[in-house]
Design a protein around this nucleic acid. Structure first.
Length: 552
RNA sequence: GCGCCUGUAGCUCAGUGGAUAGAGCGUCGGCCUCCGGAGCCGAAGGUCGCAGGUUCGAAUCCUGUCGGGCGCGCCA
């Protein structure tokens, strides 16, 4: 609807120019974009445009006069069937109302094709790889990992809503020092010895120690066996399964699990370094191999292979970039904690140095989550065993409430999360307010069926009353909300919208009785509108991965 | 010192150039003879950290400044 009105305003401008009531621009390339938005105050109408204000300077005309000329056109052919009224307000706003028949058409569309309501034309169709969570399998996911998991999944859903093909990817390191430390910890606990200083503590280590099969234990402790590595490999495998189960619980599944070791084993790292070397961006110094990141604006060069010959983490990253692009992705997105921002430049630079477009290497930083319990910050350490697991969080507040919490905040800002407060307030969470509206409609629909009432076959005259007119205006906005979310790659607008729609429906419920056997015709019309609202709520929640219950 | 993020109501946060800055929670006061009270209605509460600048118009853009967070390894 917003898009249709935007097109109508553009048409009005062109018509006025052709008719000579508005002058042509001296410099057509400087023409402003036609913008149409929802005014903050509903009294101004359904949609408003600031086009006249933008055109005042280039046209050297007062904005009110330009707005007047546009309004004339919109009242005529340019707005035929769509624009019910066009008014001008100082300093030069163009305020528009949309015809009832347009809104009735929206309701008819929703009822005839509920599943596609809210789907929008592809905004920027790409094949995208989204890598997120990527916590190493040395312990269960914590609340610290929770935000990345939710934000990553929400981003994927939003990208898909915008018509993009998305692969969800989890990168992990199942070899190396950390995994050996895990193996050593398991071995120590199994033997009843204290866990080493650089080992892992916590109940899950004890669980792992108890669960070690006899044959694994025998192999790990055999003469000459690398005990820590063997046990670590077994334990990390098992931990990974735990992680996968936790993620499944929050409705997150990954398409690809990629191990760091495989990037080395399959030669991706070596080939990528060779590619950089051939392009002249690699040099040796102090026995180490360096990438000349400063060529691309980094503040220092970066080590690829250490002087002892071992690759850095960065080396694997370089190989991984080539591996991902080789799979046909044209856009890579990384979701990292804000503490990793210092590593963006080197990775982006390396991608550029290998011939990739740096714009196709996108990093989304997630703001720090400060966990507090009753106002006091809780420090989280896997090694110290002092952490709250993701499963604990879900036990406390539930998946829907947790999803809503993260979906309603910008991904990059730091936030406080008080798990005790969340537990206490989980019953007050706005997500239930929205779900309640959905369940209430479902109940009304059931009641209506019992009373022998059915939705009106047509939608004509649907907006006879004020409650109907107010509700349909919110319902009709879903595609705009989805489009804005896709463009911004953020979901706060969706939660805000769902809340507003629920509020509007509750008001409608108060003012307009739906189930009324004394007036079956009006009941049928209101029922149609209620159904359209229910679909809209369900589709908005679905975009967030949140359930829309029929009763609660 | 340098880089990135951040400062909006009592609390947690929306609002990235438009008209009277919003929501949830909390506080105070009302509303169940009728489709679900997990609801509705109303009230109090803000010099958008501060100071300049750009603009017809700034919470939003620019500069400076003060406060908070996170980084600045041949760690991962």
């Amino acid at each position: 609807m917003r898009a249709r009105v935007r097109a109508a305003v553009a048409r009005a401008w062109a018509d006025a120019e052709a008719a000579g009531t508005l002058p042509a621009l001296d410099d057509p390339s400087a023409a402003p974009e036609v913008e149409v938005e929802r005014p903050a105050n509903a009294a101004f109408g359904d949609l408003a445009s600031n086009l006249a204000l933008k055109l005042a300077r280039p046209m050297r005309r007062p904005p009110m006069a330009i707005a007047g000329a546009l309004a004339d056109r919109l009242r005529g052919a340019a707005g035929a069937g769509l624009v019910a009224s066009a008014d001008v307000a100082p300093p030069g706003f163009l305020n528009l109302r949309v015809t009832d028949s347009t809104y009735e058409g929206v309701v008819a569309d929703i009822l005839s094709a509920p599943a596609s309501w809210g789907r929008i034309p592809a905004v920027n169709p790409r094949t995208v790889n989204v890598e997120f969570v990527s916590a190493n399998p040395t312990g269960p996911l914590t609340v610290g990992n929770a935000r990345g998991a939710f934000v990553g999944d929400l981003l994927c859903r939003v990208l898909e809503a915008g018509g993009q093909r998305v692969t969800r990817e989890y990168y992990f390191n199942d070899s190396g020092a950390q995994v050996n430390h895990l193996g050593a910890s398991v071995a120590a606990v199994r033997r009843g010895e204290p866990v080493p200083d650089d080992g892992y503590k916590g109940a899950y280590v004890e669980d792992l120690a108890r669960a070690v099969p006899e044959d694994v234990w025998a192999a790990a402790t055999a003469e000459g066996a690398a005990t820590d590595a063997v046990l670590g490999a077994w334990a990390s495998h098992r931990v990974r399964a735990m992680i996968e189960a936790s993620l499944a619980r929050l409705g997150v599944r990954f398409d690809v699990w990629k191990s760091e070791a495989s990037l080395h084993d399959e030669g991706w790292v070596a080939r990528a370094v060779e590619r950089l070397r051939e392009a002249g961006h690699v040099y040796e110094q102090d026995g180490a191999t360096w990438f000349r990141s400063t060529t691309f604006g980094d503040d220092k060069d970066r080590v690829i292979y250490k002087s002892n010959g071992w690759p850095t983490y960065f080396a694997a990253d370089i190989g991984y970039v080539t591996e991902k692009f080789s799979r046909g992705f044209d856009h890579l997105i990384y979701i990292w904690g804000a503490d990793h921002h210092g590593t963006i430049a080197r990775n982006k630079n390396a991608a550029q140095a290998m011939g990739y477009d740096p714009d196709h290497y996108q990093v989304l930083l997630i703001g720090w989550v400060r966990f507090v319990a009753d106002g006091v910050e809780v420090s989280m350490s896997k090694r110290a065993g002092t952490f709250v697991t993701l499963d604990d969080l879900l036990d406390a507040v539930g998946t829907d409430a947790a999803r809503w919490f993260f979906a309603s905040r910008a991904a990059h800002v730091e936030i406080d999360f008080d798990i005790e407060l969340a537990r206490k307030q989980s019953a007050e969470n706005p997500v239930y307010y929205v779900q309640y509206a959905h369940a209430r409609i479902a109940s009304i629909v059931r009641k209506a069926a019992e009373a022998g009432l059915s939705p009106a076959p047509g939608v004509e005259g649907l907006l006879a009353g004020e409650p109907e007119a107010a509700l349909v205006r919110v319902v009709a906005r879903l595609p705009e909300v989805v489009e804005d979310a896709v463009v911004a790659e953020e979901t706060q607008g969706v939660t805000a919208y769902a809340t507003e729609l629920a509020t509007q429906f509750h008001a409608f419920y108060r003012d307009a009785r739906v189930v009324d056997t004394a007036n079956p015709e009006r009941s049928g019309q209101r029922l149609a509108l209620a159904l359209a609202t229910q679909t809209t709520l369900a589709n908005a929640l679905a975009l967030l991965g949140i359930s829309a219950p029929d009763s609660m």
